[in-house]
């Protein structure tokens, strides 16, 4: 056990890589989710179809298969990715597809009267989204987004299979160096658990803030 504890700098470095992957992946996923999710609510059938195709394709694809494709297959036709880029792209594209469904659902769940009111007040489409629809939709999006970020963090463990030095990769190294199989895996499982709990509290904090911003449950907290 002490061997594993002695290797803490390695574990910390691995955990930092995992956190970085989670942050980059989530940012990419969020952007994709907003773009394709809003495309899914567009009036034009063509734009909606683009949203659908993205969602169906990347939800149906396994992250690891995508990652292998970016990392092993695409370089052969001339597209080269660093392992980190391949990992962030595949994690982001995959979770982004789930996020797009969340965005679409949340936007559609905003009461129709809100939409009609913006038309009556002669808002431009951009104002309508920014000032009225999105702020309300965000409150609905946050809890599922929180789950998705945790899924992404967990999913990031597979990057160790394409040689990125994340927490799982470090664990394998420590396991090989010390022969301490049990404590190595107990240690990293605990670290993953702590990261997940931290993310969850962050999301809860954000939920409370958004609720207060919208004047919902202001006193309850």
């Amino acid at each position: 056990m002490s061997d594993v504890l002695d290797a803490y700098p390695q574990l910390l470095r691995g955990a930092w890589t995992t956190v970085q992957l989670t942050v980059y992946g989530s940012v990419l996923a969020l952007v994709l989710a907003l773009v394709f999710g809003l495309a899914g609510t567009a009036r034009s059938a063509w734009v909606r179809a683009v949203g659908r195709v993205y969602v169906e394709f990347f939800r149906g694809m396994a992250t690891l298969v995508l990652m292998y494709w970016f990392f092993y297959a695409l370089p052969l036709v001339g597209f080269r990715f660093t392992p980190m880029a391949a990992a962030v792209l595949s994690l982001g594209l995959n979770i982004g597809a789930y996020g797009a469904e969340v965005v679409r659902g949340a936007v559609r769940a905003v009461p129709k009267a809100q939409y009609e009111a913006t038309v009556a007040l002669n808002f431009t489409p951009v104002q309508r989204m920014r000032r009225v629809i999105l702020p309300q939709a965000v409150a609905l999006m946050l809890p599922p987004f929180g789950n998705l970020v945790i899924e992404l963090m967990k999913g990031s463990a597979v990057v160790s299979l394409i040689t990125i030095g994340d927490l799982t990769f470090r664990a394998k190294q420590i396991q090989n160096a010390t022969g301490e199989t049990l404590w190595t895996y107990v240690a990293i499982l605990l670290i993953y658990f702590v990261i997940a709990q931290a993310l969850q509290s962050l999301v809860r904090l954000a939920e409370r803030r958004v609720d207060r911003m919208l004047g919902r449950r202001a006193e309850a907290t």
């Binding site: 945790i150 967990k154 999913g155 990031s156 463990a157 597979v158 160790s160 299979l161 799982t168 664990a171 394998k172 396991q175 199989t181 049990l182 895996y185 990293i188 499982l189 993953y192 658990f193 997940a196 709990q197 969850q200």
Partner: peptide, 21 residues
């Protein structure tokens, strides 16, 4: 809660490498 919030891959490693010990 613990199983749900830790990666499947690490759990697989645990089953495959730790249980034999």
């Amino acid at each position: 809660e613990f199983v749900r919030s830790t990666p499947l891959l690490v759990q697989l490693f645990f089953l495959y490498y730790v249980l034999p010990t």
